[in-house]
Amino acid sequence: MGEEWDNGPGPRARASFAAGLAKGSPILIGILPFGLIYGAAAKAAGLSLPDTVLMSLTVFAGSSQLVFVGLWQEGVNAFALTFTVVVVNLRLLIYGSSLAPFLGRNEPLPLRVLRSYALTDESYAISMAGFVNPGFRHSRTAYYLGCAFPTWIGWQCSGIMGHLAGSALPESVPLRMAVPLVFLSLLVSVLSASPSKAASKAAAALGAGLSAILLSGLPYNLGLIAAIAVGVLMGSLVSMGRPSVPGPGAGPKR
């Protein structure tokens, strides 16, 4: 894959980016209200517009930015604040470990930094739903970046709009439901991608889902991480003893 990027993106990379862009665009419905809330919260916490934009550009992780704003407003000390933000983002480590085997090798350092920066719940979920599909034939890094771009641009713009206009969305508009619905749509897609592994995937889904509810009281978003671990464990236990499953390296050719 590296050669596709030697002199900028080649035609296949461009087409794959466009395909990712198309797949990632529906997330805008969910990102916009979330960003508006962030922008309005930042303004309410006394942050200036440049400060609000700076955080969106550098941290680029919605829930942790809202945590940051909340703690800043409460006057929590700097160490506790930054530590909490990083812990809330620990899940990105898990996403990265899962995603890395699917992305291209021998890619230039700026591209590796860019693909790292682009990692969010949304870019992971949307791109991964494509990667695990046996029929996937795009250039993976380009597709992944295409999936991530709508989230990035939507997040930056809506944060600014939220700061400028405050939370202008009426309560009756249920746009806050959009992000969960995106995740649900992707979950159905992943679950139905390979019927031969339905039992282990169902076990993983149930284990993770129920644990996410039972462990929701844990601080710093750790309940989510623990729930993911339970899901992986249950899926692995169910698939144990079955014929070996192909890893990402055995997937479709890049």
């Binding site: 899940r91 898990i94 996403y95 470990s97 899962s98 890395a100 085997p101 090798r105 021998n106 890619e107 590796r112 719940d121 992971y124 979920a125 991964m128 739903a129 695990v132 969960p180 995740f183 649900l184 992707l186 979950l187 992943v190 679950l191 592994k197 282990s200 995937k201 993983a204 889904a205 149930l206 284990g207 993770a208 889902g209 129920l210 644990s211 996410a212 509810i213 929701s216 989510l224 729930a227 993911i228 339970v230 899901g231 992986v232 464990l233 249950m234 899926g235 692995s236 698939s239 070996s244 499953v245 890893g247 990402p248």
Partner: peptide
């Protein structure tokens, strides 16, 4: 540049990561 080498068992477990993450997010 290269993926971190991981044991087969870990790689097999990783296969359940996307569905676990999505399910945890959806249920929550």
């Amino acid at each position: 540049d290269e993926p971190v080498p991981s044991p087969d068992m870990l790689r097999a477990a990783m296969e359940h990561l996307p569905v676990s993450i999505l399910s945890a997010l959806v249920f929550r």
